[in-house]
Amino acid sequence: MIELYVLIGLMIAGSLIAIEVKNLLSAVVAVGVVGLGLSIIFLILKAPDVALTQIVVEIAAVVLLIRATLNRDIAMKYCGNRPFGAIMGILFTGFVFVIALITFKDGLNLFGAPLMTVSQFYPLNAIEGTGATNVVSAIILDYRAYDTLGEATVLFTAVVGVLTVMRSPGKKKEEDLQDSK
């Protein structure tokens, strides 16, 4: 599994570049590198559904980020850290890191040996139960379709939220605001 470690190292390098580089466009491109490495890791870990979705969503996210940051001359201006930001960040992430390492020791299965007590049911019964040969598709649309319904609700809420935030304010409303002041 040496390629896994190489790819995760590439992702860590890409994310370090993405958060430290001064030019915002370069930062967005570095995020694209991170997402591409993640997609290939999914393919190595035998998850082709997730890899396909990840690479497509990555392209969409990079396009949206570039459209948001491009054509804004002030966006290229560098803003540094918050006051005490670096110290607070290092303290908090170190705390998270130590707690997570302690938790890994006790409560997590070894890499390459999953606990299949519940999910062994799905591959054994997918063909007879649903007729779909893709087990992941059978899970998200038959056994756990409530999850997908909730996902559709969240997506709808996000779309409505974007439309609400981005709508241009009407003239009448601005006049009302000035009157109330």
Binding site: I19, L24, R82, M88, G89, F92, T93
Partner: peptide
């Protein structure tokens, strides 16, 4: 998480 805590730029 470090980027979220310490950076000042919203895109970052």
């Amino acid at each position: 998480i470090y980027a979220v805590i310490s950076k000042r730029n919203i895109i970052k």
